[in-house]
Nucleic acid binder design. Structure first.
Lengths: 346, 346
DNA sequence: CCCTTTTAGTGAAAGGTTTAACTAACATAT
DNA sequence: ATATGTTAGTTAAACCTTTCACTAAAAGGG
């Protein structure tokens, strides 16, 4: 049903119908009521294409994900939806399927620049007011995305000071975990990092070092191993760590999968967790609640990241002058479960 | 950049530009080349609103999810995307946030009929060619969704013969699991069902019974417990089951969370898994690979469900006569891990 | 009762695209 | 030389909405 049809039935002009439906006072109450009734009965829905074609405004947020299946992606989207619903926005989703294309060889992101921009063009075709880019990995994606629409990056980052980003605090979070372990009497704290090139890994490593330093525990690189985020490398590196003559009393794995690997290694070597070895992971994925013992970890506030990304986008579109900082960095929370105890062998 | 602008630069009419860009032979090669170059340089993108306003076709699939955070939702969406990409469709996503609104009190779905239809109206506002409805629970949603666009339901169902649905085979899958346990020498096979009203639960229960019957094992309801899909009830019901004087040698929990609860109960009662108790779950969620022992389960082909839903929608739009059956039922696959062994106490 | 203001409505353009119908120029066939 | 066909375009309408500019009638003021 269109304005034209309603106009015909009501015996008035198209303009009058439009005014009536937009509750203008150019239309008498009686006519307005009549038109509204017809529209109601015909289940009239304004054509958004025509509307936005005319007005230039769409109230449409475009989301571009690198991997819709990535655990956190859907939670971030949900945060965006929450904002959208509260503020009468709508959402169009597009997926680069980047992860499917390139597996974990994130070095090659640039090769897929064109694919990403194809999706951007698609979103622009819908005249989104702006774009939220949801990443899923640890590489800098500077200079990849080309658009002159406003864009907010979340769960990823660029090296540009001018880009809008919603991030979480890797440094502080890792600092907190390390501090927590130290407070529990641990001094030999093993660390299993992510890949060398990974920014989150490096930031978390930094936090670890800061906590050590603050407690005057010298950094000992024999306790620092490097994995690739996988369960398997977590296991392997933990085996090395736990075979040292002076083995660590606690291990901080920089993500949960590797932490699960550490747990497996401990089991293998008949080292009791947490009595003889405390373990902490990062990300707080679902399995943390099901391992034995349950794994302490760090929750990333993903839904908030989505919500804040949308909030920021809205501000960029409506009142850019009110944005004090282009980067928002959210704190994470430690989730204390059963994989840590006080170090008795102190 | 618009056709008009290109036309001005090229010194031809708008129509010519349109024809040129659509590679019509109404335009000479030289002019065509010139126009293409200008379009390229100006990074021309056709305005989808205007295009579809004119043509009536959108090549746009609307997805309506009940819960974007539900584990399987994103995998289903991914399947839809796969089809979309291969067939030059695009996707608009909308979320009813049903789960957030009503928690697990799915009885009240009908109360949210209006909310759901608000989202449907939204999708219709974008003139999607059709809608894929992705559920996340076990209730019949007949008569909830109102639209005259084609709609395909997946991971949910209605009682109408006329609705298009892409489902998976609960009966057969549960039959297979039970059969597998029987083949491993188990006769006392405990079952932990989902809620009484749950359709998947009932179907799986049916499969269980069919396998028993086929093997002339009488159904003994003392071995059939009812949970609510949660870890907690899995644990509680398993405690009852394992405290029977003749306790089951195997337990089939109708989802993985409850199966994890069963495992916990076994640990609590010092019953070794799988030596003294075999366990199988359903859904094959991530934690299955991380429990000890790893949980055998059933994989639901969620990505395929998404892909096939999109395929079906496409067929409905283009060649409805070729659709032989409005319901597609996909088989599931058992994933054999470490939680089952041959029953020695036979 | 005339002039001004308000009310209630209409007409038409605009936004970007596609496409049927038309035209002018030229080439080919008779 | 005339008729026919082809080529390479153009014009204009249509899709649906919003909104500026306009008008006719009614109401209000003196």
């Amino acid at each position: 049903m269109t304005l034209k049809e309603i106009a015909k039935i009501a015996g008035v002009s198209i303009a009058t119908v439009s005014y009536a439906l937009n509750d203008s006072d150019k239309v008498s109450d009686s006519v307005k009521k009549k038109i509204l009734k017809i529209a109601e009965e015909g289940n009239y829905q304004p054509d958004k294409r025509a509307q936005s074609l005319r007005t230039g405004r769409t109230k449409l947020i475009g989301i571009l994900t690198e991997d819709i299946s990535f655990v956190f992606t859907s939670s971030i989207i949900q945060g965006v939806y929450k904002f959208a619903e509260e503020n009468n926005y709508h959402v169009v989703l597009s997926d680069t399927r980047l992860k499917q294309r390139i597996g974990s060889h994130y070095e090659n992101t640039k090769v897929y620049k064109d694919d990403i921009n194809k999706q951007i063009d698609f979103l622009e075709g819908y005249h989104v007011d702006g774009i939220i880019y949801i990443g899923c990995h640890d590489r800098d994606i500077s200079g990849i995305v080309k658009t002159n629409k406003p864009i907010v990056y979340t769960y990823c980052f660029t090296d540009s000071k001018d880009d809008y980003m919603v991030l979480y605090d890797n440094v502080k979070s890792a600092y907190n975990v390390t501090q927590y372990l130290i407070e529990n009497g641990h001094k030999r704290i093993g660390l299993i990092r992510g890949p060398e090139m990974s920014n989150p890994s490096n930031e978390r490593f930094l936090g670890y070092q800061m906590a050590l330093m603050e407690n005057r525990i010298p950094l000992d690189l024999t306790y620092v191993m490097t994995g690739d985020w996988s369960y398997k490398t977590g296991y392997e590196e933990a085996m090395k760590l736990l075979s040292l003559k002076e083995r660590p009393t606690a291990v901080f794995a920089l993500n949960d999968y590797m932490a699960m690997g550490v747990m497996e290694a401990a089991t293998k070597l008949s080292i009791k967790v947490p009595e003889e070895l405390s373990i902490v992971g990062f990300d707080d994925i679902e399995i943390c609640g099901f391992s034995k013992p349950k794994l302490s970890s760090v929750t990333v506030p993903v839904e908030d990241m989505g919500y804040l990304s949308a909030t920021m986008l809205h501000k960029i579109c409506t009142c850019p002058e009110e944005i004090s900082d282009k980067k928002v960095i959210l704190p994470c929370e430690m989730v204390l479960r059963d994989s840590v105890t006080k170090n008795k062998g102190l």
